[in-house]
Design a protein around this nucleic acid. Sequence first.
RNA 1: GCGUUUGUAGCUCAGCUGGAUAGAGCGUUCCCCUCCUAAGGGAAAGGCCCCCGGUUCGAAUCCGGGCAAGCGCACCA
Length: 576
Amino acid sequence: MGNKIEIKEEKMNNMKNPIKLAYHSINELINNAITAATQQGLIKKCEHKEFTIEIGKDAKNGDFAVNFALTNAKVYGLPPRALAEIILQNIDLTDTYFEKVEIAGPGFMNFYTSKSWLNFIINTIYTSGENYGKTETNNRRVMVEFISANPTGPMHMGNARGGAIGDCLAEILKWSGDTVTREFYINDAGNQIERFYKSLKARYYEIYAPNTIEFPEDGYHGDDIMVLAQKFADKYGDKYINGDEEEFKKLIIESSLNDNIEKIQKDLEYYRITFDVWFYESMLYEDGELDDTINGLKAAGCTYEKDGALWYRTTDENAEKDEVLIRANGIPTYFAADIAYHRNKFLKRNFDKVINVWGADHHGHIARLKGALSSLGIDSDKLDIVVMQLVRLISDGKPIKMSKRTGKAISLIDLLDETSVDAARYFFNMRSSDSHFDFDLDLAVEKSSENPVYYVQYAYARICSIFRMIEEDGVNISDLSAINSFNYNEPDEAALIKLLSTFPDEIIKSAKAYDPSRITRYAYNVANSFHKFYNTCKVNCEDESTRNSRYYLCLATKTVLFNTLSLLKISAPEIM
RNA sequence: GCGUUUGUAGCUCAGCUGGAUAGAGCGUUCCCCUCCUAAGGGAAAGGCCCCCGGUUCGAAUCCGGGCAAGCGCACCA
């Protein structure tokens, strides 16, 4: 599997990821023990089955629990505990970070790390600094497309959740080694733009020629349309009342759309989201990609005409009926444009992986989009959709739809005004995307330990406070070269250090599962573990060695909290 | 009706590539500052892991069948 250089690189990579290093080491120890036992004729040579190494949930079960003997009992024809016994007799822990292995329960082998393991972790975090947590696990060109809010109006709660999830997911993938493009798809073409225009036109006529045009039934009723029409009127006056319709249409759509898009960009910037690419749907029409796509589908033989429309013959056996690609009126459907858009992602831009964050209300769209891509010869497994369930806002324990302040449906920016960017970004990533999430508005503004985001930030501020105190006292802290004299004897110290060691692995797991909520949970656990440590272990104490040890543990904790918060793009306040 | 997500402590949720006594937070009851931010920590109480079957040494976890809730099933996006 790979040459020397790769192995060397992998070892360097492992250095930044203590858990992976430990796994690697345990794997090697077991393989060596098996080889030794085979040579002694204790067991027959066998191809063993896969086994897992778990981080011990309970301290008394060791630091790493290995189920090798359980999964391989049958393979070697021995009871699990007997097999474990043979392995243990042949295991050599000299020069490792492990001090003992025990057999427990039905046949687990529990590995216990030594004190030097704790020092190793502290050293790793210190030397990695703001890069601690970053690995080269993945190496793909990945696009994360998220929000993609309709530019005909302001962003809503679904966009708020999708924004937080998508942005953090993109960051997690980046930390795990991928090259990531964040993309926003602007639906600036098709049917809803027609509706947008009709609504604008009606509002424009209301200004200069009331009651001449009826407001369209399927129009956009929001006040924002009136504001846009007024703005247009301010600039052009009544020039276009019964004027050049074509010119009017082009101008009013263009200026209104631009205004909306600018507003969206500004709001998202405030929400700390920066997109690499703003992709305009209209480009697909202009560049002929939509036509190419339709032709491709025709060539693949999966289209037919009926009732004046062009249909896509679905390959999804669950679908009740086929889908329209081009309406009888000649306007392509959203579905057609979406196929062309995804064709562009893969065939034109060659992404290895495309991840879309979609609301649950779009769920039914997945199978047919993937089916259509397959029809075009694109490997649809390269497309993953993160489906997030819809959000409910809760205030006073009851669901609310309208903002108390504006009396209208709550937009992204209303939410950020009523709570904070930090709280929103944290809260939307507290639960996995497939859970039905209730956003507690009262809790999000709470400045107490009940509010998890404050709880985490407070841990960070507390560390900064300790450092300020040490500095004020003029206490001497040795440099890291004294690390071999560090001694962590308190259980709360060891627990915290071991938790810090799992950070890079936590990111890898989050990336694999597309689950940013693991990171907020991790942040919370680190804060909790630190507060425990704080209560039992005084940092600025008399004993020099203890003080140094604890100082560097605080520094490591500070680094991990900082990295976690910066990954989530949540502020890390030094004073609260 | 079909598809899909969810169902775990009073409430909000972890755990779900099968493993050792099912975990957190909030709420409830009690305890802890002569000492770095008590904006913190500790302890107790609290569970037919929705129900019924199956797979196996072993199921909250996997499979099948139910039940309940959210979402979707347009020539809307």
